[in-house]
Amino acid sequence: MEPLFALLVGALFTVAIYLFMSKHIIRVLMGAAILSNGVNLLIFTAGRITREVPPIIGADSDVLQASAANPLPQALVLTAIVIAFSFFAFLLVLGYRAFQKLDTDNSDEMRVAEPVNESAPPLGY
């Protein structure tokens, strides 16, 4: 199964990076959402794929059965999903406020921090 997952991960990364390089904040946001999926799936796949058996110990056993899925990447990914979502929300609000203030979602026109014709730095002491 891993090659299929690798293919999907590659596709997720490609699309996310393509969106990241857009000039429009809204596209970048979508890129961020997709990138988090890509990274999560990457970690999940690196822990190897197992079908259908969740990592839950049965009532009659003290240890996890050998056929169960690898719990470690799942634990890593679980928190990653939630944190990625919080950051996604933060980025969204950031973009939203920027649009309200600057009346554009085109990053080329957002030049508050780096103005187009920035004067040379002062030469005095």
Partner: peptide
């Protein structure tokens, strides 16, 4: 497109290479 395709392919290859290595289940 070319930059993102190269990056995406890179990640896919990287993941493939990782999964083709023997798995170390020590921590799990």
């Amino acid at each position: 497109m070319s930059v993102s395709l190269v990056c995406g392919t890179g990640f896919a290859l990287y993941l493939l290479a990782v999964t083709q290595q023997p798995f170390n289940p020590y921590i799990s």
